[in-house]
Design a protein around this nucleic acid. Structure first.
Lengths: 209, 209
DNA sequence: ATGTTTATTCGGATTCAACTCGGTTATGGA
DNA sequence: TCCATAACCGAGTTGAATCCGAATAAACAT
C-alpha cells in the first residue's frame, strides 16, 4: 500500500506540476539547503498536506526535478541521433552540444538558473539514463560507420568521453567565471575525439602494418 | 565572536579527531542521509554538546571530512610533482594515478569505503584546490618541457583532462560494477593525453608547415 | 436531480533530529 | 593550592518534516 498517490484527475496533475514548477522557481533563487516543503507548497499555492499526497518526502520533489531534466536530455539525444550518425565524430559531437545548449536555454533558461543544483547534486541514478542513451548513440554510430569499430581502446575512450565530457560541461555551465567558454569547450571535446580516433588508428597501424 | 572554538589542549584535538574519524566510520557503513549528530557523537565517544563545541552544524563535520580528503590528494600531487615532470606526459599521468590509488587505499581503504559520499557530494569548494595543484603541476611541467608550450588548445585540453579525468576516475572508483578497470582507465587517460598532444602538433604543423 | 463513492485538498497536531545552554569537571600555570 | 579558562555534558528547546482526520470537490450511478 503506497503512502503517496498518483494524480488521476486533471486538477491533481496540475497540482503535481505546480509543485515541481515551484521547486524549480525556488531553487533558481535560493539553494537546496534553504528549501522547505512548506515554502514549496506556498509557492505552488497548495498546502503541505497536498504536497505530501504526491511526494513521500522532500527528496522526492528534487527527484522529480532531476528526472525531468534527465528526460529532457535523453529526449534531445534521441532526437538528434539520426543526424549525428551521418556526420564525422567531431562534427557529431558539436551538433549534440549545440542542441544541448539550446535545450538548457528553453523555458527562460530554467535549467541554467538551476545549474548549481544540477551540477552538484544530480544523482548518479539520474545521470545513468543519459549515459545509457549516449552508449546507444555510439553503437548506432558504429553500426553506420563501421570503419571505427576496430579501434583499440574504443570502450575506454567512450567511457572517458562520456563521463569526462559530461563533467567538464556541467562544470563549465555552473561556473560563475568559467575558465573556458562553452564554444571553446565544445570545440575542444570535438577536437579531442578526432585526435583520439586518429591516434588510435596510428597506434593500430604501427602494431599491425 | 565565534560560536565554535578551536581545540587548544591536547585532549580537545583528540576529540575533534575522534569526531572526524567517527564521521568516516559512519559513512563507510551507512549514508549521508542517515547520519545524525547524535550517532556521530556516540561513535566518537563524546556528547552532542561537545561535538557542537567544535562543529557549528552537521555539514561542518562532512566539510572536515572533505577537507581531509582534498588535503591528502593535493599533498600526494605535490609530492610526486618532481618525478612527474621528468617523464613523458602519458607516463607522468600513469605515475600520478598509481600514487592516487595507493593513497586511496591507505588507512584500511578509508576513502574507498566512502567513495559514494566523496564522488556524489564532494563540493566544488573542496575540488578546486585539487584542480589548482594540477594546474600548477602542468605549469611546472611546461616550464621543464617547453616543447609542449606552443600547442594550440592547450588550455582547453588541460581543462578537459583535469575535469573530465577526475570525474571519470571518481565514477570508476565508486561504481559497484565498473565498466572499465582502474588500470584500463589510467592507461586510457594516459593514451588520450598522448594522442591529444600528437594530434595538436599535427594540426599546428598542418597550419604552419 | 440526488445520493454515493472516491479523489483531492487542507492545516493543525505530532515527531524527531539539529542545535542550545547552564552547569560540571579537567587542565595548566601563578 | 587556587584560579581562570578549556573542555565536556545531556536534558531541554526549536523548527522543519511528516501525518492524519476532517472538509470539499469531482465523478458517477440511479
Amino acid at each position: 500500500m503506497e503512502r503517496t498517490r498518483k494524480p488521476q484527475q486533471e486538477r491533481a496533475k496540475k497540482t503535481v506540476e505546480a509543485i515541481i514548477e515551484a521547486g524549480f522557481m525556488f531553487i533558481s533563487r535560493q539553494s537546496k539547503e534553504t528549501l522547505t516543503t512548506t515554502k514549496v507548497a506556498d509557492i505552488a499555492g497548495v498546502s503541505v498536506g497536498t504536497l505530501y499526497e504526491y511526494f513521500g518526502n522532500k527528496e522526492e520533489i528534487l527527484d522529480a526535478m532531476y528526472a525531468r531534466f534527465s528526460e529532457d536530455v535523453t529526449a534531445m539525444l534521441r532526437e538528434v541521433t539520426p543526424e549525428v550518425i551521418r556526420k564525422t565524430p567531431d562534427q557529431g559531437i558539436l551538433h549534440i552540444l549545440q542542441h544541448l545548449r539550446e535545450m538548457l536555454s528553453r523555458d527562460n533558461q530554467r535549467y541554467l538558473h538551476c545549474a548549481a543544483l544540477l551540477s552538484q547534486n544530480l544523482p548518479e541514478q539520474h545521470v545513468a539514463p543519459i549515459r545509457q542513451v549516449l552508449a546507444t548513440l555510439s553503437l548506432q554510430y558504429l553500426s553506420r560507420n563501421p570503419e571505427y569499430i576496430n579501434l583499440p581502446n574504443l570502450p575506454v575512450m567512450n567511457y572517458i568521453m562520456t563521463h569526462g565530457g559530461i563533467a567538464a560541461l556541467v562544470h563549465q555551465l555552473s561556473s560563475d567565471d568559467p575558465m573556458v567558454t562553452f564554444d571553446e569547450l565544445s570545440q575542444g571535446l570535438a577536437t579531442m575525439a578526432r585526435h583520439m580516433i586518429e591516434g588510435s588508428r596510428r597506434d593500430a597501424e604501427q602494431a599491425n602494418p
